[in-house]
Computed example of a mutant assay.
Amino acid sequence: MDLSSTVSGHFTIITVNATRIDSVAAIQFKDAMRAATDTAVGTIVLDLGHVGFIDSSGLGAVVASMKQLGAGQQLDIASLTPDVAKVFRLTRMDSIFRIHDSLDALPHAKAG
């Protein structure tokens, strides 16, 4: 799974450079997230702007990524595409994660 990471203000932004997070990619996603968040501090924002499809395995991988974070780390979500946003709403994951409309909507940060 291709992830890229940048720091913007108080946020570590991890961008998923794939169009799908499904059962085929879920384990790779979890492993890549573990590596990407290992040294991150504070709020980590998962940018899902390129992801057009997520299934229950992918959603489980996102939740597992949140649960493996260390003390003082938090996982937020940003830039949900309409289909992925619908999955988050239907599964009530929108009540578990803080969701930002876009990276530009992050408080005191700009996409970069």
Rank of each mutant, 00 (worst) to 15 (best):
M1L: 13
L3E: 04
S4W: 00
S8P: 06
F11Y: 15
T12K: 00
I13C: 13
I14K: 01
V16L: 14
A18D: 15
T19V: 09
T19L: 11
R20L: 07
I21Q: 00
I21D: 00
D22I: 05
V24Y: 11
A25S: 15
A26C: 02
F29M: 07
K30S: 13
A32V: 00
A35Y: 04
T37F: 06
D38P: 01
T43C: 12
I44N: 04
L46M: 13
L46F: 03
D47G: 05
D47I: 02
L48H: 05
L48A: 08
G49V: 05
G49N: 09
V51Y: 01
G52V: 08
S56N: 06
S57F: 01
L59D: 07
V63Y: 00
A64R: 00
S65M: 09
S65T: 07
A71R: 08
A78K: 02
P82R: 12
D83S: 09
V84W: 04
A85Y: 03
K86P: 00
K86G: 02
K86W: 02
V87A: 15
V87I: 14
V87G: 03
L90E: 12
M93Y: 10
M93V: 09
M93E: 12
S95T: 14
S95G: 11
I96R: 13
F97V: 10
R98S: 11
H100W: 14
D101I: 03
D101H: 07
S102V: 05
L103H: 07
L103P: 04
D104W: 00
D104F: 00
L106R: 04
P107V: 03
K110Y: 04
K110N: 13
A111H: 09
G112H: 11
G112Y: 03
